[in-house]
Simulated assay, not measured.
Amino acid sequence: MLKTNRLLLLIALLFAAGIILSACGSSNDEGSGEESGGEASDSGENQEGGGDSDFKVGMVTDVGGVDDKSFNQSAWEGLKAFGEENGLEEGEGFDYAQSESDADFMPNLNSLVKADYDLVFGIGFKLTDALNKVAGQNPDTHFALVDAVAEADNIANITFKEHQGSFLVGVAAAMKTESDKVGFVGGENSELIKKFESGFRAGVASVNPDIEVDVQYAESFGAPDKGKVIASNMYNSGVDVIYHSSGATGNGVFAQAKDIKKNDPSKNVWVIGVDRDQYEEGAIGDDNVTLTSMVKRVDIAVQEVAAQSMNGEFPGGEILEFGLEDEGVSVAKTNEEALTDEMVEEIDNWKQKIIDGEVEVPSTEEDLEAYLDSL
Results as ranks from 00 to 15, higher is better:
258 K>W: 02
259 D>E: 14
259 D>W: 01
259 D>Y: 03
259 D>P: 03
260 I>K: 04
260 I>A: 09
260 I>D: 08
261 K>V: 07
264 D>T: 01
265 P>G: 07
266 S>H: 01
267 K>P: 01
268 N>V: 04
270 W>N: 05
270 W>I: 06
271 V>I: 09
271 V>C: 02
272 I>W: 10
274 V>M: 04
275 D>R: 06
275 D>E: 12
275 D>Q: 06
276 R>P: 07
276 R>M: 13
277 D>H: 06
277 D>I: 04
278 Q>P: 01
278 Q>F: 07
278 Q>E: 09
279 Y>H: 10
283 A>D: 08
283 A>T: 15
285 G>W: 00
287 D>R: 03
289 V>E: 00
289 V>W: 00
290 T>S: 07
291 L>I: 00
291 L>A: 02
294 M>K: 14
294 M>W: 08
296 K>D: 13
298 V>N: 13
298 V>K: 14
302 V>F: 04
302 V>N: 12
303 Q>P: 03
304 E>R: 15
304 E>H: 15
305 V>K: 10
306 A>F: 02
306 A>S: 14
306 A>K: 04
307 A>T: 11
307 A>E: 15
308 Q>N: 12
308 Q>H: 11
308 Q>R: 14
310 M>G: 10
312 G>I: 00
313 E>S: 14
314 F>C: 08
315 P>G: 08
315 P>V: 11
315 P>Q: 06
315 P>C: 04
316 G>D: 07
316 G>A: 08
316 G>W: 06
316 G>I: 11
317 G>Y: 12
317 G>S: 06
317 G>H: 08
317 G>R: 07
317 G>W: 09
321 E>H: 07
322 F>W: 14
322 F>I: 11
323 G>K: 14
323 G>V: 04
323 G>W: 12
325 E>L: 14
325 E>M: 15
326 D>V: 11
326 D>N: 15
327 E>N: 14
328 G>L: 10
328 G>N: 09
330 S>K: 15
331 V>H: 10
331 V>G: 10
332 A>K: 09
333 K>P: 01
334 T>S: 07
335 N>M: 03
335 N>V: 02
336 E>P: 00
336 E>T: 10
337 E>W: 05
337 E>G: 05
337 E>M: 04
338 A>R: 08
338 A>W: 10
339 L>N: 01
340 T>R: 04
340 T>Y: 05
340 T>F: 03
340 T>H: 06
341 D>A: 12
342 E>V: 02
342 E>G: 03
344 V>N: 10
345 E>L: 08
345 E>T: 13
346 E>V: 02
347 I>W: 05
348 D>F: 11
348 D>S: 10
349 N>G: 04
349 N>M: 12
350 W>F: 15
351 K>Y: 10
351 K>Q: 13
353 K>H: 11
355 I>P: 01
356 D>W: 06
358 E>I: 11
358 E>R: 09
360 E>I: 14
362 P>L: 05
362 P>K: 05
362 P>A: 07
362 P>F: 13
363 S>C: 03
364 T>D: 06
364 T>S: 14
364 T>W: 13
367 D>L: 07
367 D>F: 13
367 D>E: 15
371 Y>Q: 06
372 L>G: 01
372 L>Y: 11
372 L>T: 04
374 S>Y: 10
374 S>V: 05
